[in-house]
Write a protein that binds this DNA or RNA. Structure first.
Lengths: 210, 210
DNA sequence: GTCTATACGACGATAGAC
DNA sequence: GTCTATCGTCGTATAGAC
């Protein structure tokens, strides 16, 4: 955190700021940018519409701050896999971390999905620079594992997409998954079972098990 | 098609009706229900807002008609896999069909994703009945393959979710995928490569290859 | 620092002329 | 069957009282 970013505890201002951000994540994640009203956010905080505008000059900047928040979370959570690791170990760690992230930060995941689905208007630069570079880096590591015969020759970029899609699915399509499985909400053991299932199929699918 | 559903060709009424449905799919798929305006739909058709209200009494019923449209498409495209088939053949056919569907009907896929993401308010009944039954049926077929030792013991429901998520990803997260791969749009050969990649990893991951 | 009041545009929807 | 005009509501955003 920098000194320009308010802290959770401290002055009323800082607590209000954080409360608005938290409420905004929930609202934006369910309805996207356009369909979310400042009224809904202020209701959730328990303050007035006008007060939200006092802290954030308009809806756009509030949305941007929320996205910044999530991008920082994403970047810090994306595991740094290294070329000198065993691919089975590194990929399993990556899959398990992403499954947990989808569980602990489901709203953030849905907000991200909403933004991409609608064309990533506000995240274009992040995708083009930060994330493209991140993928490029991981692709070259995976390729080095393939070249040294440690795993099957699979397309590294699509492997990353497969890990992203299969793990995020449980956050983004939570409603569908829970409805079909006839559950009210996820439980710890179900999350572990999902991680175990994905590790089994994906790692074996890359020639890293059995 | 029933006689209550207008045809593509025929009277002006029928052509207009279909044009509005098509435009609505595009708008709703990008922005979801709430953030889509009837104005945007009528602009896309090239008619007036009032005229859309002449064909559909309100936004809600238009949205419902569009969802019906997509559900029918989904149901007719979901391959009927049978217990007496070889699992490798049946699952490969299912994966390839879903990859193609994400390519040829990307907007429909995104609209569906938007609806689930926002809590599936309009699709709750479909998920609870039609789709849950469909999954139940496929789960028992996959389980029979496992019981007869034809494939590894993997959780059948999660296998279906894996196939759904990994294939839909290329439609729903199209913007992210294309940006990271630095492409303007998908090409036929890329779609084939994706299908091949997913078949390789998922089938091998279930003990159905090598 | 928070609240009331309000401006003003866009929205969904309808009525009525043609 | 389509168009213009218009209604009431809700949206974002601001000004000013306290």
């Amino acid at each position: 955190m920098t000194e320009t970013e308010p802290q959770k505890s401290g002055t009323i201002r800082d607590r209000q700021y954080q409360a608005i951000i938290d409420a905004a994540i929930e609202e934006f994640s369910r309805h996207g940018f356009r369909a979310t009203s400042v009224q809904a956010i202020s209701d959730r905080v328990g303050t007035s519409k006008a007060n939200v505008h006092y802290y954030f000059k308009n809806k756009e900047t509030l949305y941007s701050k929320v996205l910044d928040h999530i991008v920082i979370l994403w970047n810090s959570s994306f595991d740094q896999i290294r070329a000198d690791e065993e691919p089975a170990v590194a990929l399993e760690r990556m899959i398990r971390a992403k499954v947990r992230l989808s569980y602990t930060h489901a709203s953030a995941s849905r907000l991200f999905a909403n933004e991409i689905l609608q064309g990533a208007v506000h995240l274009g630069n992040y995708l083009r620079h930060t994330q493209r570079q991140w993928v490029k880096n991981k692709v070259s590591i995976i390729q080095s594992w393939i070249d040294s015969g440690k795993m099957d020759p699979v397309d590294p970029a699509h492997l990353i997409f497969l890990i992203w899609s299969s793990t995020q699915h449980y956050a983004d399509f939570e409603t569908q998954v829970l409805t079909i499985l006839n559950r009210a909400e996820y439980e710890e053991e179900m999350i572990d079972a999902i991680a175990e299932f994905l590790c089994q199929v994906i790692l074996k699918g890359c020639g890293l098990r059995d």
